[in-house]
Simulated assay, not measured.
Amino acid sequence: MKRTKLLLLAAAVLTGSLFSYLQLPAGWLLGGLVTGIVCGMAYKRLVFDGWPFRTVLALIGCNIGFMMEPGIFALLGQYIFPLILTLSLTMALGAGLGWLMNRWTDLDPLTAYFCCVPGGASEVIGLSSDYGADNRMVAAFHTTRITLFVLTVPIFIGLTTPADIGSIGSAGPAVSEVSPAVMGVFGICVVVTVLLYYLYKVPAGTLFYGLIIGFIAGHWVVTIDNGLPSVIGGSGQALLGAMVGIRFDRPTFYKLKEIGRPSAVLLGFYFIFSLLLALMFHAATGLSYVTSLLSTVPAGAAEMSSTAIALNLEPTLVSSLHIIRVLVLFICLPFFVRLLQKLIQKQSV
């Protein structure tokens, strides 16, 4: 099993590097994602939960942290009100789609709602079972949602923006040009990030800790002029893509098929809403539309941050906004669930 996992990850990095060489949008990430999906559908799902997945998230988070500039904190303050507006609309969308899923399918209200909670897939799947929802159906829907967005958003950006945008983020120093001390510090940052997550677990914690630790190390521990080698970030994106893609296996497909046509319609609503939400955020902030899309789309924080790295579209801003979104979502989630439970009790009386 371990050998099979290593072969999959090696194939993901190889395919990602090929896609990047061909200048496909977010080539590293898409290459890993396609490799994972093919393996999951043709062979079987390989589980990468636990420290392997957290290590990849830490690598991506620390890589972004090394890129961060102090001015990012002032930018976040400028965008907080548009973020609150779009976040409120996103949470309302989740509740509305959950209501539609409950009406259109035979899923119970709690399961339907958890299927449509916009973001934090791993945490939502874990919480859903605690509240008595069918976490198998929740996992299937969230896996499909994230796979859909990770697969389509880079392609959409590539088709609607200048042709060279996919290759911008590939520039970077060679590994030999970066001192061993810098690489050693980066490795320590990744390890510390993973350990910190297991000591203090919070939603999107691995990415959040990686950002902070990478920022501190990149500004006060070591000095880097041209950033880290692009192959580090690219390999992290490919590995993340493979670990996400492998989740979309045949059992997931069959579970989603049980819901039938409503699942496709609801996912279509998600996608169209994301495009409109990005347009609203773009109008309110003045950020480019593609940056606004990556910052507001209700998909995985790490996945969209990786896409932003690959396309060189404000990765630190994208990741920071996503972390805020996930944290606020999980602060509000218990209140929404209690309200839903009360409504269910009133209807059953």
Rank of each mutant, 00 (worst) to 15 (best):
V13W: 01
P203Y: 00
T296G: 03
F156P: 07
I146K: 01
C115K: 00
S20F: 01
A12I: 06
L240K: 01
Y197W: 09
P315G: 06
M243H: 07
I309T: 12
L293H: 02
G94D: 10
F271N: 08
A112H: 06
T86A: 06
G94S: 07
Y198Q: 14
Q237L: 14
L110G: 08
Q237W: 02
I60W: 03
G96H: 08
P334V: 07
A264I: 14
T111N: 05
Y79W: 05
T307V: 15
Y254C: 03
Y270V: 15
V349M: 15
G98V: 00
I72A: 04
A171V: 09
D108E: 13
R250W: 11
D225K: 11
Q23A: 12
T307M: 12
L317A: 09
L195H: 03
A181V: 05
R247G: 15
A301K: 03
K346T: 15
G132E: 14
R250K: 08
L33H: 08
L14F: 02
L30H: 12
C115Q: 02
L110E: 13
A242M: 06
T35N: 12
A95L: 10
A283K: 08
V318A: 05
L267A: 09
V185L: 03
G166W: 04
P251K: 04
A163E: 14
V124F: 00
T4S: 14
L159G: 04
G36L: 04
V153M: 02
P229T: 07
R247C: 07
A204K: 03
V38G: 13
L46C: 06
T143G: 07
Y254D: 13
A95S: 11
M243V: 12
V47M: 06
Y43P: 10
L83C: 04
G184E: 08
V318F: 05
I165Y: 05
T206I: 14
I84Q: 04
Y113V: 09
L75R: 05
A284R: 04
V194N: 01
V265E: 14
E258I: 08
L340V: 12
I259Q: 01
F215G: 11
N63F: 10
F330Y: 05
V222Q: 11
P203W: 01
L6Y: 08
I60V: 14
L57K: 02
L195P: 00
W28N: 15
L127C: 08
D106C: 06
A283F: 06
I80G: 06
L46I: 09
A310Q: 12
Y43N: 12
F281S: 05
G77Q: 07
M41L: 15
G227T: 14
L9S: 07
I168E: 10
